[in-house]
Write a protein that binds this DNA or RNA. Structure first.
Length: 229
DNA sequence: ACTCGGATTCTCT
DNA sequence: GAGAATCCGAGTA
């Protein structure tokens, strides 16, 4: 029987411009495999592209836009690796490196639909248990987890890092296409619906560029309602 | 050495 | 919708 979390992806799919890789990544699976533990996994439903310094016009919102530094060096390496950085002193964000080696560019993973290891996700996020939504309070005991309640687990670039236990120390520079890696991208063959495009969220520069891509109407996409249609 | 701001999230109001 | 929490990397000197 086949792996429900799918198969590894081809490197060539990532040696391409970030906008193309961004669209390609929607519907793919991100999985954390700790040894001796059950996998924690989610389907990618929202991403953003960040362009390298070779690109014209430039993308001043991208970490790589001024060239290589100690922090962003993995972005200039082989495609298909994880670039994990810390933000606001308390959170992490995770990107997938793109473009042929020597050229930078990446895709920020902004939201997942939880697929496996939900109990561990909830623990990692500091919740008592898996989020539920009850129609009436007295029905709470029988309430089932639903997509709306589950979105708080992985709806947001730092929330999903927390849920999957992704840290800079453990995951920065990891090869996401290598089956032995603790953090992997995989393809289970699922097809995606309509892809919506919008400006990127939370940036100060190049705010107008349409480089955010997400599965239209999916309940796990981050941001206010108006940003998920 | 020193300053500044950030690809966020949570907790209020 | 506003404000706080909180640290590290990058830029400047």
């Amino acid at each position: 029987m086949s792996d429900p979390l799918g198969k590894p992806l081809a490197r060539a799919c990532f040696e391409a411009p970030p906008e193309r890789v961004a669209r390609f990544l929607l519907g793919k699976i991100l999985v954390q495999k700790g040894k001796g533990r059950k996998p924690v996994a989610g389907r990618i439903v929202e991403v953003e592209a960040y362009l390298g310094p070779h690109h014209r016009p430039p993308d001043p919102a991208a970490h790589a836009h001024r060239g290589p530094t100690p922090r962003n060096r993995v972005l200039f390496g082989q495609a298909g690796h994880a670039y994990v950085y810390s933000i606001y002193g308390r959170y992490f964000c995770m990107n997938v490196s793109c473009e042929p080696e020597g050229r930078a560019g990446c895709v920020l993973v902004r939201a997942l639909e939880p697929l496996a290891g939900l109990e561990e996700m909830a623990r990692n996020r500091g919740f008592d248990g898996i989020p539920i939504r009850a129609q009436k309070s007295r029905e709470k005991r029988n309430a089932e987890p639903d997509r709306h309640a589950l979105r708080t687990l992985t709806s947001g670039p730092s929330r999903l890092c927390q849920a999957l236990g992704i840290t800079r120390r453990d995951c920065n520079g990891v090869d996401l296409l290598e089956p032995a890696s603790p953090l992997q991208l995989r393809d289970d063959g699922a097809s995606v619906g309509r892809i919506a495009v919008s400006p990127r969220i939370g940036i100060r520069h190049a705010v107008e560029l349409p480089l955010r891509f997400y599965l239209a109407g999916h309940g796990c996409v981050s941001g206010p309602r108006g940003m998920r249609a």
